[in-house]
Design a protein around this nucleic acid. Sequence first.
RNA 1: GGCGGAGUAGCUCAGUUGGUCAGAGCGCACGGCUCAUAUUCGUGAUGUCGGGGGUUCAAAUCCCUCCUCCGCUACCA
Length: 505
Amino acid sequence: MTYFITTPIYYVNDAPHIGHAYTTIACDILSRYNKLKGDKTFFLTGTDEHGQKVEKAALSKKKDTQNFVDEMSQNFRDLIPFLGCQIDDFIRTTEERHKIATQFLWNKLKDNDQIYLSNYEGWYSIRDEAFYLESELTKTENGLIAPSGAPVEWVKEQSYFFKLSQWEDKLLEYYEKNPDSILPRSRYNEVLSFIRGGLKDLSISRTTFKWGVQVPDTENHVMYVWIDALCNYITALNYPNTDHDSFKTFWPGIHVVGKDILRFHAVYWPAFLMAAGLEPPKQIFAHGWWTNEGQKISKSVGNIINPYEIIDTYGLDQIRFFLFREVPFGNDGDFSKDAIAQRVNADLSNNYGNLIQRISSFIIKNSDSAVSKPQNYKEIDHQLLKSFDETLVNYIKNMNSFQIDKALKNIFDYLSEVNAYVDSQAPWSLKKTDDQRMKDVLYLVTLITIKISVILYPVIPSSIDKALKIYNLSIDNLNLNNIEHFSPDLINLNIPKPLFPRIDL
RNA sequence: GGCGGAGUAGCUCAGUUGGUCAGAGCGCACGGCUCAUAUUCGUGAUGUCGGGGGUUCAAAUCCCUCCUCCGCUACCA
């Protein structure tokens, strides 16, 4: 099995914020999970660097446009390791390879009679890079403004159009056959109802600015955002060389996107691909938005969440965990200090971290820092092992369907069971009555803790690296295929330090 | 306006095809343990399952209606 997962390419006009971090971490979790399953994975992210907004921003800062996007793109690249993410490629739309790919895609569409020249006129917002109907606009003292509050101007220009209207039936047919190709299901329904409402041809070029990929065989047209931006996903797989190993191995892929850009990914992009004779994406997952302490996040309110600040405050894995444990993936969520502290303390510090701490400290003090495989397990021990196997099955089922929160819930429900097992067996009492049984119990709990750590790895990788070091183990030798029967003869322990200090409320 | 989703304990939410489905976690109260990051374990309380009506031997679960919230989409002015 192979697994190709992508974030959208981020528009370099903004500084990276929690939304970018959220999408990137989501893909990292899924990518690591699939690696753990043994799949060959490819995790792609990058930056979208063209368009009028960028051109103007550079101008207003009196910077050369290329230098400007170089700097802005670097901000996004720098964020990745800070988020604990491991990517396989970072693509920029200003790269030569991307120009080659998009121009080839354009020509392919043109050869297939999917593109024609016409005129576009209407109310245009530079800030939003979008046309609006007059009915959508509001009159103010400064003239008409878009729903976003951005000013608009009347623009008339020649434009190339893509024959999107011809793809209505093909798209519907494809989606009806592949109901899991857009998730969550509510988003799938929205997309289908949008397509059923009828599709209009799509304007795909502009003459009002220069900062973009030139339309082949024209003087003054550059490609408008969608062909340019969406094509990145296949550029990175060496398109137009569809015989290339990475293209053959990894396409079609999985796109994780914010709900605001679902339509472009689920309608325009598959239509472009089919029109060019390529397969549509395998899956598109639309996630939700975060609010900040119950409030909508916006520049004007000034409550933008800076990923560097929250990670410095709470810790990397604490944030990664919170984002995906607290809220069903796909739903909107609220980012609040209380919720983070509560979640991290209850699950990571108390339930998981303290289990490791109490057992490993006990082994070091009372069992010469080592435990060996028991000769026999009791019935209650078998129960605990069986329960792990069930947890693993549910975990895999949920991770496979993007339900990261449920997969994590499975784990923490089980950890409660393990803590209860420890109390019921009370090794501190066995110490006085039955040394061998005490050691067997300690081994079993240690073994279970290791297994749990492995499946927590995709979400909190750096903490799991630390946890496994206590047992002189490494994630490199453990995975979802060998974890079920993992049971070494001897486990030597190192002195543990609390993995997740409690957060003061 | 159309289409879709949601309204269940203080909070966040599970509840497949109608019959242990009235639940979980957190929080709260009480009790126990003392290995552990004042951690853990056990016990307990609170709900007219949005309102009203209906079908049924039986409904949170199906039907009708109303209210509220959200998403997508359309349009008049």
